[in-house]
């Protein structure tokens, strides 16, 4: 009996450390430079994803918009919130690019084309990026202390106990989607 209790105690301690303490230890939490609300921009300003996350003329994806794009509307404060004041004072006025932390940055050995997925395959942003486009704030960026990549591209283990899917950007997610849609599935497609 005593032996079983000790075994279960070890199991419980390990599960607790692995599921609760380990993520805190392995991921460094870093705030985004600006408290940005996708929700406000989508609902109040009536903007769509592609208004800011646009494709260039040559078809390549511009990714996170630069300050020029933001300053197009925010040349002067639009509201009196602290976030707006911070943005204007620290970035727009001194013309300093915000150093956004990219949740979706893939490892260096991955090649990904937004144009192929969005324009050719007609995929929606939410398929991979989840509900980020409707969130009121930017969640804390969690950077893996060893690899240096965002936790967002490693959501699969957490999803085992998550109540709702937040979209995924792991290799398994890519493979699953390509398999489901009968698309090309060779290593060279992404690891060029």
């Amino acid at each position: 009996m005593r032996g079983s209790v000790l075994f279960v105690a070890g199991l419980a301690a390990s599960l607790g450390l692995g599921w609760v303490a380990f993520p805190y230890a392995i991921y460094q939490r870093r705030p985004q430079p600006v408290d940005f609300s996708h929700k406000v921009h989508a609902e109040k300003a009536g903007q769509k994803c592609e208004d800011c996350h646009a494709f260039r003329e040559d078809g390549s994806f511009a990714g996170v918009p630069g300050l020029d794009k933001c300053a197009g509307c925010h040349a002067a404060p639009m509201g009196a919130t602290a976030a707006e004041k911070n943005f204007i004072d620290h970035y727009v006025t001194p013309k300093r690019e915000p150093q956004w932390l990219d949740y979706a940055r893939q490892p260096e050995n991955v090649w990904f084309s937004h144009a192929t997925h969005v324009k050719t395959a007609g995929m929606k942003c939410e398929t991979c990026h989840g509900d980020q486009g409707t969130q009121d704030g930017l969640r804390v960026y969690q950077e893996d202390r060893i690899s240096g990549y965002s936790r967002d591209i490693w959501e699969r283990p957490a999803r085992l106990v998550a109540l709702r899917r937040r979209g995924g950007m792991t290799m398994d997610d890519c493979v699953d989607c390509h398999r489901k849609n009968a698309m090309e599935l060779s290593c060279q497609e992404c690891h060029k």
Binding site: G10, L17, G18, F22, P23
Partner: peptide
């Protein structure tokens, strides 16, 4: 016995799998 339970528990957490991938990256 405690270590055996801990080892089994560790395998059921993301920690070892995460560390393998992280080490590769």
């Amino acid at each position: 016995k405690f270590a055996g339970g801990a080892a089994l528990g560790a395998l059921l957490t993301p920690a070892p799998w995460r560390l393998i991938t992280d080490t590769a990256l």
